[in-house]
């Protein structure tokens, strides 16, 4: 049996984690459901005649997923902050890597999967309800519209009522893996259409992965109140880079995070090769997250209690 990674032992860890935390998961799902329900209800009350645009659904989905992931990742290794729980965690006969991979699995795979399943079940139901309410409103509006009174223009001239019989628009269900521009104002059939651009949602998913890794790292480093502490750390990091950029701007008369520089007096512009920005984006997308996860793993191994 491998001392580094054994599938059977890892699967046992995954099951153990589930059985010990299932109440927490159930409560979280109920809370998320309540919040999502409240948000949709509020939206329906305020915008009774509007429909749940895919962008709105996507915004709801990703906001919820970011918050849930951040909160969850920030507690995934927080047992280490408690002496009693930390001893139990470290001394359980499984390797560091198996314990780490269990946390990784729940944060990166299981939680988004559970959340997405829940979101689609909830969102589909909410869309059905919303569509049905809106359809009733549509029918009553169009019936009323036939006997609409003439519109009085500001100059006092009367013009006949304009009856616009638009087809009813059913709000489509969002695809959270593929960005599609909503054609709600177009003349087409009101279905979403794919746009000819890189998948915008891919960047959101990449950002989510980095965020999960950062909060998981925070759970190893900070232990107690790690969500708040990690959040403050992110703000401080952003502030640091902001001031660094101001400083470099002042010193070098250019922007640190810019790939081109315009020399005003001479009218010359300098450009960094395209591959520099390509490498930067690639690093952000594919390297930053794994690096944070790796640091979390090393810290997990080094932890003493």
């Amino acid at each position: 049996m491998s001392e580094f990674f054994d599938t059977g032992r890892w699967w046992l860890l995954v099951r153990k984690h589930w059985f010990e935390n299932r109440k927490k998961y159930t409560l979280s799902i109920i809370t998320i459901g309540g919040l999502m329900g409240a948000w949709y209800l509020l939206y329906m009350l305020v915008n009774a005649d509007d429909y749940f645009a895919p962008e709105l659904q996507a915004m709801t989905y990703f906001t919820g997923l970011f918050i849930a992931s951040g909160l969850y990742a920030s507690i995934i290794f927080s047992d280490l902050a408690s002496k009693a729980k930390g001893i139990s965690f470290i001394t359980l006969p499984a390797s560091h890597f198996e314990k780490f991979m269990t946390g990784f699995f729940y944060v990166v795979v299981a939680l988004p999967l559970m959340y997405t399943t829940f979101f689609y079940v909830f969102n589909t139901t909410a869309l059905k309800i919303s569509n049905s309410i809106r359809y009733k409103q549509y029918l009553s509006f169009n019936n009323a519209d036939v006997s609409a009174t003439a519109v009085v223009a500001p100059n006092g001239k009367e013009s006949p009522a304009i009856v616009q019989k638009e087809p009813f628009r059913t709000a489509p269900l969002v695809n959270v893996w593929k960005y599609e521009e909503d054609d709600r104002y177009g003349q087409g059939n009101y279905k979403s259409k794919e746009i000819d651009e890189p998948n915008f949602y891919f960047y959101i998913w990449a950002g989510l992965f980095i965020g999960q890794a950062f909060f998981a790292l925070g759970s190893v480093y900070f232990g107690r109140f790690s969500f708040v502490k990690t959040f403050i750390s992110i703000l401080l990091l952003m502030l640091f880079f902001y001031f660094l950029s101001l400083f470099t701007n002042a010193v070098f008369r250019g922007e640190m995070f810019s790939y081109s520089y315009q020399e005003d007096h001479e009218g010359v512009s300098y450009h960094l090769p395209n591959w520099v920005s390509a490498v930067d984006i690639w690093l952000l997308e594919f390297v930053l997250g794994p690096v944070f996860w790796m640091i979390a793993y090393v810290r997990l191994k080094e932890t003493e209690i």
Binding site: M1, P93, A94
Partner: peptide, 13 residues
Amino acid sequence: RLPSFLQKVFMVP
């Protein structure tokens, strides 16, 4: 902290 070592030790803290 190898698994084979941890399997042979138990602690009541």
